[in-house]
Amino acid sequence: MPSDDVLLPLFAAGVQAVRGDSAVSTALRDAPCPVPDQIIAVGKAATAMALAARARFPDTPLLIVTKYSHSAGAPDGAEIIEAAHPVLDEMSLRAGARVGAVVRSMAPGSHLLMLVSGGASALVEDPAAPLNLTDLTARAEKMLASGADIHEMNAARKDMSRVKGGKLLAAFKGASVTTLAISDVEGDSLDIIGSGIGAAPKPANFVFDPRIVASNAIARSAVARAAAAQGIPVQINEETLYEDINIVAPRIAKVLTSGAPGLHLFGGEPTVVLPPNPGEGGRNQALALLIAREIAGVQDLRVLVAGTDGTDGPTDAAGAIVDGALWESSGQKALERADAGTWLGARDALLKTGPTGTNVMDLVIALKS
């Protein structure tokens, strides 16, 4: 992991503020819900969210569905299913069948606590007939490579699924559902998070209590507070990373090179179009390398670009830390091959945190001296 005495603690402060365990604990403390008869946690932050729920409701059955290698430290006695992300696999279908069966089996009068975080779209699936795993995988890979944004992808996922877009809870026969969600989408809509796996059908035949318990805005506010506590002026704090990385990078670079000294903070989730047979990396690594190119030769800038979940695409890096001295002409070929991860790794610029227990999209934290 790159050594940076300022940017890394700021990123950690943002992540800590939206961790699944702390977010759920706060939500259940400030607005208690009925004792649930079942807890279902789905997404990349499912384990952390489940820990807080189990602490509050120690006797409630618990089902966790999360990404491979993301269940370490899960509560004792929990049923755990790990599956693939960002492209689903056979375990995703097994998870979809199991989650659906649990929801359908709940008795009249029962209460369900749903804990939802980003990644649930790939991790939990029950394909609509006549689709199968091969169909879903091919479509998912095509959408990921096309640069489609999360709204386009989730709209397509809902049409292909029997558990998304409120369809899972349409099978619920109980009395009430509480959904606590960590948002990884623009606008923080429960209908979009996890492709609506924790959303209620319209109309719902049960009492529904939906809450967003963590978001990119909360993470950015925590970063800004941490910077202010160190006497670092916050010049920009905005959520604008919602275009292609080739548009986002020069825009950010222009703001940084022309802006005042201090902290410049951006949030969101940009898109990237992949070539055939892409190399190693994800959108954050590619964006970081593009920013490095745009600020080449500038001596007073250092920029962290990372996913708050600790993973960037199909890699074990969250992103990268770059500055004006990093860029070399060979980086252009790496960008063209979508191989930014390999290039940045060879220069010890990758940021690796491991799973963070949350997922509120991405952060760009830039410090200008």
Rank of each mutant, 00 (worst) to 15 (best):
G231C: 03
A175H: 07
E186D: 15
A224P: 09
A219S: 15
D188T: 15
S189I: 05
S183A: 06
K173R: 13
A222P: 00
I218T: 13
A217F: 02
A219G: 13
A175Y: 00
A219Y: 07
G187M: 04
I193Y: 01
A219H: 09
N205C: 08
S215K: 04
A199H: 10
T179D: 08
I192D: 15
V223H: 03
F172L: 02
L190W: 11
G198W: 05
E238L: 02
V185Q: 10
A199P: 02
A214G: 04
A204W: 05
S189C: 08
L180W: 08
E238R: 09
I232Y: 06
A175W: 00
I212Y: 08
G194H: 11
V223Q: 01
S221D: 14
N205K: 06
S176C: 04
S183I: 13
F172K: 05
D191Y: 08
F208Y: 15
G231Y: 04
D188R: 14
G187T: 15
A199G: 07
K173Y: 04
S221K: 12
I236A: 01
V207A: 10
A200D: 09
V177Y: 03
A228C: 02
N216S: 14
S176F: 03
D191N: 06
I236N: 03
A175G: 09
F208E: 13
A181C: 10
A222C: 00
F206H: 09
P203V: 13
T178M: 01
A227R: 05
I212L: 01
K202A: 12
V213Y: 06
D184F: 01
A171D: 11
L190N: 14
E186C: 11
P210G: 10
A175V: 10
I193L: 01
S195E: 07
I232P: 07
Q235V: 15
V234E: 03
S215T: 14
A181W: 08
A204M: 02
A228F: 00
D184T: 14
G194M: 03
E239T: 15
N237R: 08
A217C: 03
R225C: 03
I197R: 02
S221C: 06
I197E: 08
G196F: 11
L180G: 12
V234R: 00
A229F: 00
G198D: 11
V207H: 07
S183E: 12
F172R: 05
D209Y: 08
V185G: 00
V185C: 04
D209T: 15
G196H: 12
I197P: 01
A181Q: 09
I182G: 02
S176K: 05
A227I: 12
A224R: 06
L190M: 10
A227Y: 04
I236F: 01
A175P: 00
N205H: 13
V213Q: 04
G196T: 14
A222L: 01
L180Q: 09
